[in-house]
Simulated scan of single mutants.
Amino acid sequence: MSVTHNAAESRYEMKADHGLAIAVYRQQGDARIFTHTEVPPEDEGKGLGAKLVRAALDDTRKQGFKILPACSFVVAYLRRHPEFDDSRS
């Protein structure tokens, strides 16, 4: 499953078995504020959310933007992967 950046919708998307998993952000200056992550209920617990968020954060960094979490899933991900957390800078 690959992750795509849907810039028109300000979100990252990944096709799952039962729908679309999304990581939504709001652009604010040189930062992307991640506001919502959603995985179809039937696909939860399979690691799709972590894969989606990892790809979104990698791409955000490659584009030169800071990462700011406002979504509980992204906050939890950043606790496990503090190298991505720009809110601590």
Rank of each mutant, 00 (worst) to 15 (best):
A7T: 07
A8L: 14
E9Q: 09
S10V: 11
S10K: 14
S10P: 14
R11S: 01
R11T: 03
R11P: 04
Y12I: 03
Y12M: 02
E13I: 02
E13C: 03
K15Q: 14
K15A: 11
A16E: 13
A16R: 06
A16H: 10
D17P: 12
H18P: 08
H18V: 11
H18I: 10
G19M: 03
G19Y: 02
L20K: 12
L20R: 12
A21D: 11
I22M: 11
Y25R: 07
Y25E: 04
Y25Q: 03
R26K: 12
Q27L: 08
Q27V: 04
Q28L: 15
Q28Y: 14
G29I: 05
G29L: 06
G29F: 05
D30Y: 13
D30M: 14
D30A: 13
A31S: 10
A31I: 03
A31G: 03
R32E: 01
R32K: 09
R32Y: 06
I33R: 10
F34N: 00
F34A: 00
F34K: 00
T35A: 06
T35W: 05
T35G: 03
T35K: 05
T35C: 08
H36S: 05
T37E: 04
T37H: 00
E38D: 10
E38L: 10
E38G: 12
V39W: 03
P41K: 14
E42C: 02
D43M: 03
E44R: 12
E44P: 06
G45F: 11
G45T: 09
K46R: 14
G47Y: 02
G47E: 06
G47N: 04
L48D: 03
L48T: 01
A50C: 13
A50G: 15
A50N: 15
A50E: 15
K51V: 13
L52V: 00
L52E: 07
L52G: 04
L52D: 04
V53T: 00
R54H: 14
R54C: 09
A55S: 14
A55W: 11
A56P: 11
A56I: 12
A56N: 11
A56W: 13
L57F: 01
L57C: 04
L57T: 06
D58A: 07
D58S: 06
D59G: 04
D59P: 00
T60C: 02
T60Q: 00
T60P: 01
T60N: 00
T60A: 00
R61Y: 09
K62E: 15
K62R: 15
Q63E: 14
Q63D: 15
G64Y: 07
G64N: 07
G64P: 07
F65D: 05
F65K: 12
K66T: 08
I67E: 10
I67Q: 10
I67M: 04
L68N: 12
L68R: 14
L68K: 13
L68F: 14
L68M: 15
P69E: 03
A70D: 13
C71P: 10
C71H: 02
C71I: 01
S72D: 11
F73I: 08
F73R: 05
V74R: 01
V74G: 00
V74P: 01
